[in-house]
């Protein structure tokens, strides 16, 4: 099922813009939902129901002066947000969002890039994305930034292990590292969230930590660190960091959907599979809502709690889950 290269290019452009649009409106959704959960109204001045707020934010960020500290080390300081934003956006390329369609004479795949090891690719991009945070904080030449990037680095490295191990169960069950194949396998069986419930839970928890969101938002604890690694950033450079964080959250939700929640499939019915992107988007919204709900509900962890939870509870649970899954799969065959 190959497609001409120009179809891929057009699809990549469309997907990037859709992801950016989702990012922009996730910020609005977050502010609105947080406000409603705290008995406020949230942004309601720009456009009807505040719907133009993300556009207003973008215009503000672009027009703002991008000043930076004189002590900052130029090249890494400028490149760091670019690296973060690039890896965040690139990771979405391998997440399947549909079955593929025949439009006129051409076949269009339901994924931008169908690579056989897409899952590892996402993790590889994620581990490169960390550099944006740590280099940015270091190059800012500020105590708060450095402390923030140290915290980010320690937290991300700690929870990456559990995240990778939680996915292993699905990989063993599906027998493939290809996300397209994993979604395909879930079409006629139970979604992997049922047999891999523990894996799903570990994935969600370490995913929240991996995207530095509440209750694991220690890297940006504003009461202690001003803002964390992006303290000395302003304007669109800060915007890129913020974008990377939200896009990471969206990609992680997409990955959770792909691995555990049947991807773009509609539950129990295959007649509506051509609407794959719609079901994908509905599931995405549900997960994003859960992320925001968590932030409104849970207080931040203490740093020692964060570390001992990651290493002493989450990691053993994820390891046992992977081992048990492997044993069950071997025994079943």
């Amino acid at each position: 099922m190959s497609e001409p290269w120009w179809v891929s290019v057009i699809k990549a452009l469309v997907i990037i813009n859709l992801v950016l649009l989702t990012f922009a409106y996730t910020t609005l959704l977050e502010r609105k939902l947080l406000a409603r959960m705290q008995l406020r109204f949230g942004p309601n001045r720009a456009g009807p129901y505040g719907l133009l707020q993300p556009i207003a934010d973008l215009v503000k960020l672009v027009r703002k002066e991008s000043f930076f500290p004189t002590a900052a080390i130029d090249a890494p300081y400028i490149l760091a947000p670019v690296v973060s934003a690039f890896t965040a956006l690139a990771a979405f390329a391998v997440i399947p969002f549909g079955n593929g369609w025949n439009i006129w004479r051409y076949h269009v795949n339901g994924v931008v890039a169908n690579v056989p090891i897409s899952l590892i690719l996402i993790f590889a991009l994620g581990s490169i994305g960390i550099y944006g945070f740590i280099v940015g904080g270091w190059a800012s030449e500020s105590k708060y930034s450095l402390l923030g990037s140290m915290r980010t680095c320690a937290q991300l490295v700690s929870y990456e292990v559990s995240l990778a191990l939680s996915v292993l169960g699905v990989v063993i069950t599906a027998g493939s590292l290809s996300l397209v194949q994993i979604v395909h396998n879930q079409a006629h069986s139970l979604w992997y969230v049922v047999p891999q419930a523990v894996g799903f839970l570990v994935f969600l928890i370490s995913g929240v930590a991996e995207t530095s969101r509440a209750p694991f938002d220690l890297p940006e604890a504003e009461q202690e660190l001003v803002a964390g690694y992006h303290t000395e950033y302003s304007g669109m450079r800060w915007g890129l960091f913020q974008m990377a964080e939200y896009v990471n959250m969206i990609t992680l939700s997409g990955l959770a959907i792909t691995l555990f929640l049947g991807g773009w499939h509609f539950p129990f019915a295959h007649g509506v599979d051509f609407l794959g992107p719609l079901w994908f988007f509905v599931k995405l919204l549900a997960l994003l809502f859960a992320f925001i709900w968590l932030r409104a509900t849970l207080p931040r962890l203490r740093y020692d709690q964060l570390m001992s939870f990651g290493w002493k509870i989450l990691l053993p649970v994820a390891t046992v889950n992977a081992l048990v899954t492997a044993l069950v799969v071997v025994w079943a065959n």
Partner: peptide
């Protein structure tokens, strides 16, 4: 390039 070098950077920083 990911996990190992992050540790290097972490320590040098």
């Amino acid at each position: 390039a990911g996990a190992v070098m992050v540790m290097f950077l972490f320590v040098t920083a």
